[in-house]
């Protein structure tokens, strides 16, 4: 009896999820012609994109500007957007956000400002904490991240700040999942080497 109830609950849950997904997919199709549907997509994604931009740029004001650029791009381009599902839309949106953030960072003069902002984003490590043996200096780490290729920077943000799976990152960047795994492994090696060089140099 109990098993049957669990099974039934699971089925209802699965159906609800399916219905929700279908509704979201429908929303994407309607958003191509209806402002109301686009407004709902905006509500669904504004915070996520803003958070991505903050994590990429470490300055809320700049993140607001870049978020604006992302959604205005969407407003102009959604009619020609070929995707049909909510997942397609999400991938498209993050790809735009990644491009807009990269375009912002491309100017060297802006990096200094970003670095200064990033320096203030770290909680000072608790003295005596057992967990801080591996702790690199955050501004230095962020400086090292900024030295990576823009695409690699995006991978770091999506993976570690937004907690996206390899599969999701692969979809957003339109590459193979295995490719993301290998690239991320190389990125971490590169960051480790760069930071090691900095520390060794100081000693």
């Amino acid at each position: 009896m109990a098993r049957r109830a669990i099974k039934l609950t699971t089925m209802v849950g699965a159906m609800a999820k399916f219905a929700e997904r279908t509704e979201d997919n429908d929303l994407v199709l309607r958003a191509k012609t209806q402002a109301e549907a686009l407004g709902r997509l905006y509500e669904m994604y504004y915070e996520r994109i803003f958070r991505f931009c903050v994590h990429r740029l470490f300055n809320k004001e700049i993140a607001e500007d870049v978020t604006s650029a992302v959604f205005l791009h969407v407003a102009r381009g959604i009619r020609d957007f070929a995707g049909r599902s909510e997942q397609d839309f999400r991938n498209w949106l993050y790809a735009i956000a990644a491009n807009q953030a990269n375009a912002y960072i491309r100017k060297t003069s802006r990096r200094k400002k970003l670095l200064a902002e990033a320096a203030g984003s770290m909680i000072p490590a608790v003295a005596g904490s057992a967990d801080i043996s591996f702790e690199p200096d955050w501004p230095r780490l962020y400086a090292a991240i900024l030295r990576l290729k823009p695409k690699h920077q995006t991978i770091v943000t999506l993976r570690f700040f937004e907690n996206f799976s390899y599969e999701q990152i692969a979809q957003i960047l339109d590459v193979k999942e295995a490719n993301v795994r290998v690239t991320l492994h190389r990125i971490l090696n590169k960051l480790r080497n760069q930071l090691q060089t900095v520390y060794d140099g100081e000693i």
Partner: peptide
């Protein structure tokens, strides 16, 4: 390391609302 960062990602409601209006106007 990333988990230790204290990053404020709270959006500004005024920006959210203004951008919504601007976006729909462009649309």
């Amino acid at each position: 390391v990333v988990g230790r960062l204290n990053i404020d990602t709270e959006p500004n409601p005024a920006h959210r609302e203004n951008l919504r209006r601007q976006m729909l106007s462009v649309f």
